[in-house]
């Protein structure tokens, strides 16, 4: 699992790759928190196109990122989530709460 970030103006894109489970979730949350605090973006895009697996730990990561961005007056969108991850997020009803883009982060 890896997390890499790039900034463009007030937009922050964070690419999460590999397997995101309970074993890795805290590390991802803490790194995202740190990057949000540092960059203070207006929009955070989570690029999940490199995600090979997630479980309900991914739900917790997305909800936390959403909460952090709303508190900061910004917004979150999720791009490129693979079918396995989409199915997990749909089971939790996340698509009613978070903006999902079917393509990559630049769509």
């Amino acid at each position: 699992m890896s997390l890499t970030c790039r900034e463009q103006g007030r937009a922050l894109t964070a690419r999460v790759s590999g397997e995101l489970d309970h074993h890795r979730a805290r590390e991802v949350m803490e790194e995202l928190d740190r990057r949000i605090d540092e960059s203070r973006p207006r929009e955070l895009t989570l690029d999940l196109s490199g995600l090979t697996f997630t479980d309900s730990s991914g739900i917790a990561v997305l909800l936390r990122a959403q909460r952090r961005m709303v508190q900061a007056g910004g917004s979150l969108r999720v791009a490129g989530a693979p079918p396995q991850a989409r199915k997990v997020f749909q089971a939790a009803g996340l698509e009613r709460l978070i903006r999902f883009e079917p393509g990559g982060p630049d769509t």
Binding site: R26, S56, A60, A91
Partner: peptide, 22 residues
């Protein structure tokens, strides 16, 4: 129950719901 958890912040309380769904 969906969203019920006694775990940390990295738990969503959706574990049993996912198992039931899948």
């Amino acid at each position: 129950t969906p969203l019920f958890t006694t775990g940390g912040e990295e738990r969503s309380g959706m574990g049993f719901t996912i198992m039931e769904s899948f």
